[in-house]
Amino acid sequence: MTTLAIESNIQTQQRKPKILWYVSDAWIMTQRSVRHITRSMDQLMSVAMFPIMFMLLNRYVLGGAIDTGDISYANYLFAGIFVQTLAFGANYTTINLAVDLQQGIVDRFRSLPMNPSALLVGHITADLIRNAISGVIIILAGLLVGFRPTAGLIEWLYVIGLALIFSLAISCLSAILGLVVKSLEAAQWTGFVVIFPLTFISSAFVPTQTMPTVLRAFAENQPLTHVMNAMRTWLVGTPSDNSAWIALAWCLGIIIISLPIAAWLFRVRGK
């Protein structure tokens, strides 16, 4: 090996406003996170297989036993599975962040002249992209098992909009979890401890009227139920209430509160 001649010691710092740099950094980090998803078998499975499995199991194992009134179970179930899939997909942010933090690469990012929170934005954006793909797959799977939406173009746009905002909200919350857990195992557990109860004690699989009082009270007032109810209204025309507004308020509230907390946690961690 010969000597390493370094051409110049001056970095070719291009001129750009700060905010544009931030966007460009965040985009580089997003590309990185997307590559992680496409290169890990585990993650690819989570994008496609799990939603389909949930859909089939619920539709055919439970489906016959559940009374959903006027609409078919396939039509009732779809919104629940859709939201559940998004929630689990967005929860991957916890694991991805925890994995990163265990490796030296985060230290390297921190020693670069960029705002390290671009890493957070990258993970969250990548998980949003993953969820968009999962969402399409789940819609196709639903159509195959008897889901017959009545939604028009406007309603579909509402569904997509709320799905993205909801996914973003869960990702932001998951980012906080990923930053506070001390180990990978713990990161994996949080999905079960937080997301499972939220998706099951909701209107996802059975109408909430059938639940015992305490559960019912929780189920009817938690954000996931509102998201599901709003989507159900748009998709299959169940009677509309103010769920859409409540869902939107929850999601925006979660994002506005948890994003700065996550950014702060990321900055102080290890200092």
Binding site: Q11, H36, R39, G104, I105, D107, R108, S111
Partner: peptide, 17 residues
């Protein structure tokens, strides 16, 4: 940060890339 390069004690590389 604009002046330094850092190679930490444990390799700071992205295994998937």
């Amino acid at each position: 940060r604009s002046s330094i390069g850092l190679t930490g004690q444990y390799a700071a590389v992205d295994e998937y890339l």
